[in-house]
C-alpha cells in the first residue's frame, strides 16, 4: 500500500504535495491551488477546499482568509447546453463573482429567440 492521503481526489493531489507547497511559502488558498492544481478538477473544490484550508491552518497557525474565487459553472454541464447559451445572445454584462474580470454567458430570452 502506497499510503497516500489524497487531499484532492479529482486531480490526484496528495497531502504531501500541499505540505510541500506550504513549506515553499504558499500559505494562501489561491497560491496553493496554482502551485499544486488542487480544486481544478471535476468537483471544483467541493471536496478539497476545506481540507486544504485546514492543512494550511495546521501548518501555519492561521486559517486562510479567503477561499478560491467561485466561478461558474458550479456543476459540470454538457457542452451542448453551453452552446445553447451562446445562441441566444443578449448584451454582455459584468458579474459580481469576479469583480469585473469575467463576462457573463450570453443568454437572452431562451426558446430560440436570438437578438
Amino acid at each position: 500500500m502506497s499510503g497516500k492521503t489524497l487531499l484532492c481526489r479529482c486531480e490526484d493531489v496528495t497531502l504531501d504535495e500541499v505540505e510541500h507547497a506550504i513549506a515553499k511559502g504558499h500559505t494562501d488558498i489561491e497560491s496553493v491551488k496554482r502551485f499544486t492544481g488542487f480544486a481544478t478538477g471535476w468537483c471544483q473544490g467541493k471536496q478539497c477546499l476545506i481540507a486544504c484550508a485546514r492543512v494550511i491552518e495546521d501548518k501555519t497557525g492561521a486559517f486562510p482568509l479567503a477561499p478560491i474565487t467561485p466561478r461558474p459553472p458550479v456543476h459540470p454541464m454538457p457542452l451542448g447546453m453551453l452552446a445553447g447559451l451562446a445562441n441566444v445572445v443578449s448584451t454582455e454584462r459584468v458579474t459580481h463573482h469576479e469583480r469585473g474580470a469575467v463576462r457573463k454567458p450570453n443568454v437572452g430570452n431562451g426558446e430560440g429567440e436570438s437578438q
Binding site: 461558474p72 459553472p73 458550479v74 456543476h75 454541464m77 454538457p78 454584462r93 459580481h96 443568454v107
Partner: peptide, 18 residues
C-alpha cells in the same frame, strides 16, 4: 442544479435542458 448566477438571471441545468 443551479450552475451560475448573475444579476439578471440564474442558469439551472436539468437532465434535459438548461
Amino acid at each position: 442544479a443551479a450552475c451560475a448566477t448573475f444579476d439578471d438571471g440564474t442558469l439551472v441545468i436539468t437532465g434535459e435542458r438548461a
